[in-house]
Amino acid sequence: MSIYLKLIWAYLKIGLFGFGGGYAMLSLIQREVVDSGWISGTTFTDIVAISQMTPGPIGINSATYIGYVVTGSVWGSLLATVTVVLPPFVLVLYASHFIRRHKDSAIIKGVFMGLRPVVVGLIASAALLLMNSDNFGAATTECIKSIAICVASFCVVYFTRIHPIFIIIAAGIIGAIIY
């Protein structure tokens, strides 16, 4: 089987079974690309690090990077990215249309009434899971600085109308100064 077909198959699976956003998808990506022997575990960690350092969804970043590394060609990147996006794209469109057509049905109304508080919980869990030493640092002083940045960022985003993008830029500048 050609490497391109293998790439399509792997990212088809990642796209179709990756529930719960980027971080939840990581273990799935790891299983497909590391356990199949395409890249080493260290390279995978490096890709995750790059994905965290560069903007954009981690699923897209990993598909683009691994597609290039595995095939040595831009086409590999393009193929992996399109494959990971397309099947969910179709599913999301269908779901969205179905829901709009039956917007006033008891099923849709009830289902969304139950889902709303759950979605709030899902976002909270993503925040909780990120409050770790990877993001806040292991050393005490770094951790205190990180908490200060986190609390200040929260206050700015929650109480002012300053665009979050400026908070990220400001936090980057602060990081460059204090570390």
């Binding site: 976002i123 908490i147 940045i149 986190c150 985003v157 908070i167 990220i168 500048i173 460059a176 570390y179």
Partner: peptide, 17 residues
């Protein structure tokens, strides 16, 4: 790497809000 040390906790705040 120090720029990103500053960015990561801000990202967490962007998810708490």
């Amino acid at each position: 790497s120090s720029i990103f040390k500053g960015i990561r906790p801000a990202v967490v705040a962007l998810i708490v809000a």
